[in-house]
């Protein structure tokens, strides 16, 4: 991370007006959609054009904008919207900014209370995600709440040849703030394990070059030198022997495709917490 960015790891001081809104929402029953954008302004510190755009697009939606020039962080609060709705609105905002050549160097969406217990904590998380080097800087990041406090971000390695599954999992798992690494085949998976030292490896069984079983065998042999990481298998293979073979090799969990993403989320969380 650049030195310049490290300054912003602590949330920039929250302006009085923003703090006022935070107190208001936390006290009331309403939810609040939060969008944090890291961008440069085009001379309009009040972002009047953007406000107008939002007003025409969603006339019934109340939106408040807060911009800090020093950090280049724009925070938008949307009254009483869910996370999904916030994300949807952020799509429009991103397109608007891009069409006006105000490049957003990162967008993060969240919603109180879905994304966390306190808006300040959510804001902290959003800022951290925006100012760290993200894997996909142009993508909109989503903050999904979790009740477990991680000491550090869990590192996940996904060994999967199918690009669609890669996309599904990396998008969904990034919401939780996990650090996601990808490998396309068993050999690459092996290299990444050595490089990254993940906490959890999610692997397919039918992989080119070196298949999942061989990778699992190698991983289990590694426990002598490094700390054993947990292994979860997510595979196309639905034969009974595959499940028994995997568990015999000490795999922590076994899921077949097509899978339920929310079930996968829960199983991963359970494995990481224990």
């Amino acid at each position: 991370m650049e030195k310049k960015d490290r300054r912003y790891m602590r949330p920039p001081g929250i302006p009085e007006k923003l703090a006022y809104f935070i107190r208001y929402y936390e006290a009331s029953d309403l939810s609040c959609g939060m969008i944090a954008i890291r961008c440069r302004h085009s001379g309009d510190l009040e972002w009047k054009e953007l406000q107008q755009f939002l007003a025409t697009k969603e006339p019934k939606q109340a939106a408040e904008l807060f911009y800090e020039q020093s950090s280049g962080r724009l925070v938008i609060l949307l009254d009483d919207v869910s996370l999904a709705q916030t994300h949807y609105t952020a799509l429009a905002i991103k397109e608007y900014l891009q069409s006006n050549e105000q490049l957003a160097e990162g967008i993060c969406v969240a919603s109180y209370p879905e994304s966390g217990d306190s808006m300040e904590a959510i804001l902290w998380e959003m800022t951290e995600r925006l100012y760290q080097t993200a894997a996909m800087p142009s993508a909109i990041q989503v903050v999904k709440g979790h009740d477990h406090k991680w000491e550090r971000r869990p590192r996940l390695l996904l060994v999967e040849n199918d690009p669609v599954i890669q996309q599904i999992l990396s998008v969904r798992l990034a919401r939780h703030g996990y650090e996601i690494h990808l490998a396309e085949n068993g050999m690459e998976g092996k290299e990444k394990v050595e490089q990254v030292q993940p906490d959890l490896v999610i692997t397919e069984l039918t992989l080119p070059v070196m298949n999942g079983y061989q990778l699992i065998d190698w991983l289990q042999q590694q426990h002598e030198t490094t700390e054993r990481c947990k292994i979860m298998v997510l595979t196309d293979r639905r034969l009974e022997e595959d499940m028994s073979q995997c568990f015999r090799r000490g795999v922590a969990d076994f899921l077949t495709k097509p899978f339920s993403p929310v079930e996968l989320d829960w199983r991963i969380r359970r494995l990481l917490v224990s």
């Binding site: 039918t206 639905r238 077949t256």
Partner: peptide, 8 residues
């Protein structure tokens, strides 16, 4: 085929 390739 992907589904068939995992079928018993």
């Amino acid at each position: 085929f992907q589904s068939l390739a995992g079928s018993k």
